[in-house]
Structure formats: structure tokens, C-alpha cells
Design a protein around this nucleic acid. Sequence first.
DNA 1: GTCTATAGGATGATAGAC
DNA 2: GTCTATCATCCTATAGAC
Lengths: 176, 176
Amino acid sequence: MTDRKKKILGVALKLFANDGFNGTSTKKIAKEANVSEGLIFRHFGNKKGLLNALVQQAAERTSVLVAPILKEAHPKIVIQKTIELPFTITENEYSFWKLQFKLKWENDYKSNEKMKPLLDHLSWAFSALRYPEPEKEAVILNYIVESIAIGILRDGTQSHESLKTFLIEKYKTLLL
Amino acid sequence: MTDRKKKILGVALKLFANDGFNGTSTKKIAKEANVSEGLIFRHFGNKKGLLNALVQQAAERTSVLVAPILKEAHPKIVIQKTIELPFTITENEYSFWKLQFKLKWENDYKSNEKMKPLLDHLSWAFSALRYPEPEKEAVILNYIVESIAIGILRDGTQSHESLKTFLIEKYKTLLL
DNA sequence: GTCTATAGGATGATAGAC
DNA sequence: GTCTATCATCCTATAGAC
């Protein structure tokens, strides 16, 4: 992967995340990346191809991020790590996550597959802890964690920090 | 409000919700509404003006929908009605809600003001029920309810029906 | 791999007639 | 209030040179 190709991907990620796919012209991407517009099409075929490359990168990045939770064998730790997940987002990853969430609303990319393994592992954890409805608990916790992630993208990590402790304590109590 | 103006608003709502603001051309709106393209600009000035009209309609519609909960004086019922809220969405309102949620990602429309009164009333309800952290409980429940709404928009009401009972029971138990 | 130049079409918006 | 015709601009994509 050449430096220019990487630059294009980086700039496109930022712009797609902020202004949306249709709200971002290839011209703007080229300008901000200090690259000719033609180069984008040489490397990615068309604009959609550029987005696809970004989506593929994201899939890999997501599985790396979720891996430590999936390997965790202690149910209580699985839950705690899941709650902590959105708080591990650093500011330079904001564009990445923003694009992920936005794409859920695009008809072509709404696949939910990436988070399925985490959901399954959460179900298992609640099940191991004898919750009567483990699947539903997993769905709910997943919803909470996703909403927190979205909130953080909007207002920053700090604004939600107190929720982390609150949630961990809440789920700890229920586990006693 | 003339019939043609209403028609434009209805078609624009559907298309903006499905394909996004930038993904929808005024030409397409005009064609689907059986109206000349010029008429859109006569009525709404420009494309953004059309979106603004939609946003204003939505604000009114939202406050009507939330009103019954805000008037509710029994804290337990406030919580139950909040949980039930997303399940009252009918299919012909899907576009309306879809646009609402999508706009949260648009830099110009991310205002969260519309749901603030509900959040405050929820806080009050949890407080009245002696929860130690009423504001946080309100935020969490609000997150859950929003996520369910989004899930319903994706997969239909039926797919989440069992969660409704589950949640109502869960919060009932915690209140004993 | 990268750039410049350009084609071909779509897009938002306006003017003027009815 | 509504339509037709039209404009200027922008957009994606390609061709050809280096």
C-alpha cells in the first residue's frame, strides 16, 4: 500500500464520517489529500470502491477490538469488558466509529454481522450466571453500550464516564 | 397548505428517510410527486428549505407523541409508557422516524432538545421511586428505548415484541 | 504510480408564461 | 399556484502523457 493510497483512505474516512458518502465529492477528497482526482479512480475503480475499501478495513479493525472479550472465559469479566468497550475509544478513532454507525442507515451496508459474535458471547455469559433470559439481557446490554458509544462520539468520553461506573456496579449487584 | 405542497412534503419525507438528503435529487422528488421541479423551489425556496419544513413538522409530531407521558403523574406508569413508546410506531410512520434518527448524524440537525422533556420526566419518576441515581437510570432507559425504536425500524415491531414484556417486568421487579 | 485535461451527465436553482 | 425551458455549476469517471 503506497503512502498516497493510505492518505486517500484516511481523508475519505474523515470526510465520509463527517459529511456522509453523498455529501463528499471525490474532488474534495483529492484536494484534501493533496492528490489528483484521477488517482482515486485508478486505485479504487470508483467512489463506491473507495467506500468498500474503508468498510473492509473497518471489519478487520472491529474484530481486533472485540477479540479480547470473545476470548474471555469468566462471564462476569465478559460483561464488565463489554461495558468498558465504548470508553476505550480514543479521539483519533472517532471518524472510524462515526462512519460505522452512519453506515447502519445506508441500505447497502446495514449488515449487523460484525457484532453478532459479541452478542452471542454475552448471551453465554448471562446464561452462565443463571439469568432467566440471557439472550434478552444480551440484546439490552448491547443496546446500552451502542448508545453510549454514540453519545461519546457526540459529546466526548468524559461526558459519559460516570455511566461506566454506574453500569458496572449495577450489573455487579444483580450478579450477587 | 395545497395538495401539491403536501404531496411534495410526503414524497420528500420518504425519499430523504430512505436515501438521505444528499442522496435525493429535487428532480426525483418532483417526478415521484407528479409535480414540476420548479414548484419545489417556489414553495420552499431551496432544497434545504424543504428539509427544514420536514424537521419542523417532525418537532410538532414528536411533542404530540410524548405529551401523554409528560402528563402522567404516576412514576411507575411513566416508566411503563416510555418502554411501550417505540412499540406504538405504525408502519406508515417509519419514514418519519427514520429521518429523525438519521438527522442526528447530520451536523446541522443533531439537536437533542426534543427528547429532553421526556428525559427529565423519567428522572423525576425514578427519583420518586427512590432510585439512588435517577438521572442515570433515566439516561439508560432512554438509550434502551431509542435502540429498540431503531431495531423496530430495521426489522419491524414484531421482532422486538418480546423485549417489551421483558423490560416492563424487569423494571417492575426492581420497583418492588 | 501519478498527473492533467476533459467528457458526459446530473444537480440545484431561476425566469417567464399561463 | 403551477409548468416549461434553461443556465451555471458540480460531479463521477476516463484517456493519455510522464
